[in-house]
Nucleic acid binder design. Structure first.
Lengths: 238, 238
DNA sequence: TGTAATATGTCACCGACTGACATAGATTAC
DNA sequence: GTAATCTATGTCAGTCGGTGACATATTACA
């Protein structure tokens, strides 16, 4: 990696850290791009060459998450119920959080506190999620052998999974400075979501136009499999 | 209603209609507030006294929807499973759409086409949903007798319900100019979502810390009840 | 060292949005 | 009907986020 690349990476992080600190000190809305640029001795114009906008500073983490989910998804067996695959993908994200460097962990905690102070950011966050969701829908639809554009079941399942992640993230904490607690909460939320879904239902062979079909599903050994899945939080599958 | 009120209502609708038409003609982003204001002979400053911003024009419908959902929710029996209550609330919104005046129906169809052309608006829409969601969470949590802030199950269920609505709204149509088809799609999506959830599970008596509890639930007569619920789309309960 | 690639800064600009103030119109009291 | 009041609107100036264009400084490579 050349000098150029390294310097770029360094200033990028400098901007990010300066911004997060400013957001914590004086709030997201009250902090201007000029301030951020000024505090890292950078022209405001340059700021926009590193980040597409102020939101990018605070929403950038999400791209990484989706990437991890996509990788995990591709590694899961095709005959697995879609929501189970997505649960694994979500857990992979939490594992990545655990394995992050101390610097990234600190950034994440700051981010979390910033989100707490600015509910509007949660909205922005889900907006970004909704726009990125399509990649996941395509993947899920492909596994189920259906058309990603017209199939609503795939969209629903993905939307549920992403909602789960959001609820897990924004849920109130006792100690906001503990990354492990955040991770634990997220995993609990994922389990909660799994508990809400029909465990015996593989939507691949469910025909919504005929309401009787799902009832014929047998609550077979899937339950046992789900239990083992629930407990292997430390297992890597990506 | 005095002359003042009437005039205000009239200009408000004039602004809205002019804006929707402009959005359709030249796109949402390419349309400026000055243009909208100009086309209704209004000062740009006045525009912002009627609408909080450009998004308000396109996201305003949502407030009405949440209001209907809240009213419906309050009319549902307390012992009903939360997602069932929310399904009814969602259906109430679709019924309201059906019963809307021809003018409102036309506006809604325009809106739908605008959303199709500008995927970013879908993001903005869910952002607004996420910010409004809290009222619904509080209602659901109150019915379940739990703390709205700490209880994740209530949040999850509400998030799922709102996701359902979004998926139903944005799903591709054969005829974008037919409000009935949109309504039909939404109801199908609601049914789909209901099929994804455990029908026999009332989360009120499910303890997530003990994974064995939900398995002990019996798939009893609830299933039958759900079927009748699925078909009374034309029944008013608000 | 010289040259091409690229990162940065400067400047001018647009569009969304807001506060302050003046004015024109509608409402009410008398 | 007129005066006094309330409020809706317009004007103006200004802030902030964001972008294109162009010049310049820095790095990479031969």
């Amino acid at each position: 990696m050349g000098l150029r690349e390294r310097k770029k990476a360094r200033t990028r992080l400098a901007i990010l850290d300066a911004a997060l600190d400013l957001f914590l000190e004086q709030g997201y809305d009250s902090t201007t791009v000029d301030q951020i640029a000024g505090s890292v001795e950078i022209s405001p114009r340059t700021f926009f060459r590193y980040f597409t906008g102020k939101d990018h500073l605070v929403l950038g983490f999400h791209d990484q998450g989706v990437e991890i989910m996509m990788d995990t998804l591709r590694g899961r067996p095709t005959d697995e119920p879609p929501f189970t695959s997505l649960s694994h993908a979500l857990r992979a994200v939490t594992r990545d959080m655990e394995d992050s460097t101390p610097e990234d962990a600190a950034r994440f905690l700051k981010l979390r506190r910033i989100f707490d102070d600015n509910p509007r950011l949660v909205g922005l966050s889900v907006a970004k999620v909704a726009e990125t969701e399509h990649a996941l829908v395509r993947e899920i639809a492909a596994r189920r052998g259906v058309d990603p554009d017209s199939d609503r079941l795939s969209r629903l399942i993905v939307a549920f999974a992403m909602s789960t992640m959001r609820v897990g993230f924004e849920c109130p904490l006792h100690d906001v400075a503990d990354l492990n607690e955040i991770v634990r909460r997220m995993r609990e939320t994922i389990e909660l979501a799994e508990g809400l879904m029909r465990p015996d239902l593989n939507p691949a062979d469910w025909n919504p136009t005929d309401p009787n079909t799902p009832d014929s599903n047998t609550p077979d050994s899937n339950t046992a499999e789900r239990d083992t899945v629930d407990r292997d939080g430390s297992h890597r599958d990506a």
